[in-house]
Simulated assay, not measured.
Amino acid sequence: MTDETETRTGWPGIVLIWAVAVVGSAIVAGLAFGGLDDWFEDDSWLGVFGALGVVLAVSVLGTLAVQLASRRPAGFVGRVSASIAGAFVVVAVAAAIVAPVAAG
């Protein structure tokens, strides 16, 4: 059973990753609505989703770095799951928002 204090102290790292996902998704969405057509040398309409995939990848790697840096093994899987799930939801919402613009 996980101690209540261990769950509470993990929230700053989780929220940090969610913030990274929000900022990255906002940048990609802003560029998509601004008319950027070339994403990582991919000029197809699917390129914006590749950029959002990079945001999700950075969030996953950031999650592992932040949670390993905390040096608290208790609750590790729960904290990592919460971070990645939240980042996935943020990126999925951003993908739904940019879909009409990406499809042209």
Rank of each mutant, 00 (worst) to 15 (best):
G75M: 10
R8G: 09
F40Y: 13
I14S: 00
A102C: 01
V101S: 08
V22T: 03
A92S: 06
G53M: 05
T63F: 07
A21L: 06
V58L: 15
V60P: 00
W39I: 09
L31R: 08
G47C: 09
S81Y: 13
A92Y: 08
V28P: 03
L64K: 12
G24F: 07
V55Q: 02
P73T: 11
M1I: 11
T9Y: 14
S25D: 01
E4C: 10
L46T: 15
G13T: 01
V93R: 05
D38H: 14
P12A: 07
A69P: 05
Q67V: 11
W39V: 07
A96D: 09
V93H: 07
A85V: 09
L46C: 13
G104F: 10
W39G: 00
P12G: 05
P100I: 03
A65E: 11
T63D: 02
V93T: 03
E6F: 14
R71N: 10
A21F: 07
S25T: 02
G86V: 00
V89D: 05
V20S: 01
E4L: 11
R72K: 14
L46H: 15
W18F: 07
V91Q: 02
V58N: 06
A29P: 02
L16A: 14
A19K: 02
G62I: 11
P73W: 12
R71G: 06
L16C: 10
A32W: 08
L52A: 05
V91H: 05
G24A: 04
A85D: 05
W39Q: 05
V77G: 09
V58C: 13
E41N: 14
A69F: 13
F76L: 06
L61H: 13
W18M: 03
L64H: 14
A94S: 04
V98C: 01
F88R: 00
I17P: 00
V54S: 10
A96Y: 12
V90L: 06
L61R: 13
Q67E: 10
V48S: 01
W18L: 07
G34I: 11
I27S: 10
R79G: 02
I27T: 10
P73Q: 12
W11R: 15
A29E: 05
V80Q: 00
R71M: 13
E6C: 11
E41I: 14
